[in-house]
Nucleic acid binder design. Sequence first.
DNA 1: ACTCTGACTCAAGACGAT
DNA 2: GTAATTGAGTCAGAGT
DNA 3: ATCGTCC
Length: 398
Amino acid sequence: MGIKGLTKLIGDNAPRAIKQQDAKALFGRKVAIDASMCIYQLLVAVRMGADNLTNEDGMVTSHLNGLFYRTIRLIELGIKPIFVFDGKPPSMKGGELAKRAEAKKAAEEAAKKAEEDGNLELAEKFARRVNRITPEMMAACKTLVRAMGVPAVEAPCEAEAQCAELVKHGLAYATVSEDMDSLTFGTNKLVRQLWSGVSASAQKKGHTPTEFSLDVLLEDLDLKMHEFVDLCILCGCDYVDGIKGVGVVKALSLMREHKDLAKAVEALKRLDRYEVPDPYPVDALREMFFKPEITAAKDVSLKWGKPDEAAIKKLMVEDNQFDETKIANGIKRLLLARKTSNQVRVDSFFKPKSAPNAGALAAKRKAAALAAKSKGKKRRSPGLSKGKIMKKGKLGNK
DNA sequence: ACTCTGACTCAAGACGAT
DNA sequence: GTAATTGAGTCAGAGT
DNA sequence: ATCGTCC
């Protein structure tokens, strides 16, 4: 998972590195999208009651629905998406990954046992708990985006790292993900919450696409890249636990003081107040970020082509029972969008119609944060009078 | 007093009809 | 009766 | 704008 509190740290110490802006700002740009994150979001959110949408074989299709419309919207906005898919999980993922695996294994075993007992219903329920993106789902997503004329890149390992590689070599302008780890992998631009600015329905949820700039961030935090990576490791990442009592702020001051993860860790060990994870393989940890397993940019070819109408229909309508007219409409939009976005690109003095107030927004937000900080306790006492008291829904018994 | 961490809680997509 | 992951926001309290 | 449906 990302580094906890890193966003706030950047907001407080390097606000120039954060820009809130309309999705239109990405017009004409290529963006490398962390497909797994995108798919996972859709899986979690798109449900009918307790269940995901499924095709007639019971295979989940929630992600396809979302992916289809999101891709159309991006093209309509003149953004060129590249979907980057995860490969194998990295060898070194420690605690977190193991924990997740345990939980899933437990569910799987329960399912198996129930099946042996002949309780098929129960077996099914447990099976459903194993909420994971299957290879089949990944494959369907790749088929879909490719049929839509959008490139799908298969990363050998982590998509984040592959996205960063594409950005570093100019094959994409930014990485699109929610995970701040992208910056640690060295992507110069990271766009979060892009989807909030892409679909009309999401727009007013208070979220705005937000662009992080690594170069500005390093400059304003006064860190070299390797020091920033050290900082992230020190805070705890996917590959090693954090150190109890050390959060982003302390980690930053440690890095400023020692300029080196190994030295910072040594310093912490000397104070016996801290429990440093026992194997703390500094070099191996750094390598996870500096030499991740990726396909070199020069070996990646990206092509944005014409949508393959028949292929889209086969996947969505025939294989997954999506409504034919809806899909046909989507394809129409897609074809139209390609045409217009090409036109617009030629007359590039087309005016963006809504004034981007992003800067003002950010400033406002910052001001509010500062105000809250300085006032602090003042608002505490009267504040609770608001009608905000909600009944906790937990009616324990029935 | 103030700063920081960590435990807790919350919500999560996109569309179109009304 | 039905899940489970993630980041953001809040709050209490440990540590300085 | 809100809400129910999408598969």
